[in-house]
């Protein structure tokens, strides 16, 4: 199990490096593609945590879906990037405050732990476990998720329609 540590550092370096390019890159399309790499790094971290299902979802939804959506959103806008584009705006102070607060919250959670959020980690194959739990204990959130998806779909259709008229 000693190999896990270098693999973790490797994946963490890929994720953080790609995320830095996302934030600091000047070509917004490069940023979007760098985001793909960051998502892959996170998927690798999930695999390292034995959360294979989550890793598959990460690749399927985030790499396959969200990034496509982002790229389409970029292509929808008229030229919004280039060498002269500013990557900072006047919200810098506020966002630094929020990011710093979140950082300290995460550090605190890592240090002390939040007991209310602690759950038992399943040890065996987790896809059947997720399926069973989703169909028994968490059936209401599961059905609510479909309503949420429905709302997203209808909302997107209405917004796109308004755009056209």
């Amino acid at each position: 199990m000693s190999i896990e540590l270098p693999v973790f550092y490797f994946l963490a370096a890929i994720t953080i490096g790609a995320a830095l390019i996302v934030v600091l890159g000047r070509n917004i399309v490069h940023c979007a593609f760098s985001l793909v790499l960051a998502f892959f790094g996170v998927a690798g971290l999930y695999v390292l945590l034995d959360a294979e299902f989550l890793a598959a979802v990460q690749v399927l939804i985030y790499v396959g879906g969200i990034t496509i959506l982002l790229l389409f959103a970029i292509m929808l806008t008229s030229r919004a990037s280039g060498p002269g584009v500013r990557i900072l705006n006047e919200q810098l102070g506020l966002s630094a405050l929020i990011a710093g607060g979140l950082f300290f919250l995460l550090i605190y959670a890592l240090w002390k732990g939040i007991p209310a959020l602690a759950i038992k980690v399943p040890t065996q194959a987790n896809v059947p476990t997720i399926g069973r739990v989703l169909m028994t204990s968490y059936v209401l959130p599961f059905e609510v998720a479909s309503v949420l998806l429905l709302a997203a779909l209808v909302g997107a259709l209405i917004l796109a329609r308004k755009e056209k008229d």
């Binding site: 299902f53 598959a56 399927l60 939804i61 879906g65 896809v127 059947p128 997720i130 399926g131």
Partner: peptide, 16 residues
């Protein structure tokens, strides 16, 4: 994306 998320929910259901 909406239907990809739906498919993701189908996987654990099908396995279990």
């Amino acid at each position: 994306i909406v239907f990809a998320v739906e498919t993701v929910f189908l996987f654990p259901w099908a396995v279990a």
